[in-house]
Design a protein around this nucleic acid. Sequence first.
DNA 1: CGGCATCCGAGTAGATACTG
DNA 2: CAGTATCTACTCGGATGCCG
Lengths: 148, 148
Amino acid sequence: MYSITLGIDMETITENQKVRVAKKLKKMFGHMDRRQMEYCPIRDVMALASDKWSILIILYLGYYPVLRFNALKKKVYGISNKVLSERLKVLEADGYLSRKMFPEVPIRVEYGLTDFGHSYLRKLIDLSEWVTEYSDQIISNRKNFKKA
Amino acid sequence: MYSITLGIDMETITENQKVRVAKKLKKMFGHMDRRQMEYCPIRDVMALASDKWSILIILYLGYYPVLRFNALKKKVYGISNKVLSERLKVLEADGYLSRKMFPEVPIRVEYGLTDFGHSYLRKLIDLSEWVTEYSDQIISNRKNFKKA
DNA sequence: CGGCATCCGAGTAGATACTG
DNA sequence: CAGTATCTACTCGGATGCCG
């Protein structure tokens, strides 16, 4: 049996808060919990929206108002042409970002967030801030766990 | 060229807000932007924390205070033994959840969120609420896009 | 330059059977 | 009951080449 003690002084979570959280979940799960949600839109949307690459793309487009394909590729370090263009396509399709093509020679294409994308970006930033804040903690949890 | 008009009346996003967001991102990306972050802890942590299954597991454990292996498996519809036990292991290792084993016969194991997990759950709920709210919109964006 | 088509390899998920 | 072991299937990502 393991027991991980967190070294940080985390904002305490009261029973009250847990109850409030449970209520929200109940609301969300209400229709989702009934079995036979073979196809669950929430899951579907979440799957894309929380994809590792999608998150990075959206975050970078929040930072740099517009980015061209290759610039984006450099920022989102490690992504391949294929995956990047795939993600860009579905992210555009879902309405997160816009694609402006300038028929110059050589061609120029600029990607940017839509207002919808910005609205999502805000949520994403909250999440990322949390992750940034605690990532060291998590990494060290992981190490301690392995030792046990 | 495409142009998607969103049917919903989204909270408007001011330039001001965009600037604030950009500042936050600058802070986050500051150390991350310098190339040679071959290994980026943020990415690493995000990859797990934003995993499709992990999210569902954490959300369900937020709803039901404790769940046993098979109960969880039923809730997180569609997950296999293997993947579930893998995820549970890493989520425990990272400190999101706790595992209590009762050496009875038959054996009983209960999973629950740690305080750390609850802290993450709160962020996750914000995200999920957003997704829930807009998923219909997104699905319809997607359909319209395909038609174009 | 942007980005799609193709191919290929590695890793991951799923199904099933089995064990403490 | 709570997993592990094994095997297969398949998806996904990376590399490359080509075209507008």
